[in-house]
């Protein structure tokens, strides 16, 4: 699924833009950063309600491609600055986490396959 399409179906607002053609292959929704670190695929979008800079750091560690903040949350300046440095696009949507994930899932975006502990 392309970034352009994701923006459209979530009616998302752009905080930091990325290439329209950016291909997203899987998604995850989490507010726990250690859960996010259990994801390991590239070209993954993270949907989250957390907006602190550690979200971007966490994304950077596992090469996530996109972060979408839910429930209309807007990140503080430090988060945007760090995302800019890491070349990581940021979106925000008014929809809550559960609904936003559901919309992407229904539209055909696969969940990340997790390996077991």
């Amino acid at each position: 699924m392309k970034l352009k399409e994701i923006k459209g179906i979530l009616k998302a607002e752009v905080i930091l833009d990325g290439p329209d053609e950016l291909e997203i292959l899987s998604g995850c929704g989490a507010d726990l950063m250690s859960d996010v670190l259990a994801f390991s695929k590239e070209n993954t979008v993270l949907l989250t309600g957390l907006t602190n800079p550690q979200v971007v750091r966490t994304a950077e560690m596992i090469d996530l491609s996109l972060i979408i903040f839910v429930r209309g949350k807007r990140p503080p300046k430090e988060t945007i600055k760090l995302a800019k440095e890491s070349n990581l696009p940021l979106l925000t949507t008014d929809k809550p986490l559960y609904q936003a994930c559901g919309i992407l899932y229904t539209a055909g975006l696969n969940p990340e396959k997790l390996s077991k502990f």
Partner: peptide
């Protein structure tokens, strides 16, 4: 509050 402290840190390190 920062999204840590879920008791998964050392598990992730081990994994």
């Amino acid at each position: 509050e920062m999204g840590f402290g879920a008791g998964m840190g050392l598990c992730n390190i081990k994994r």
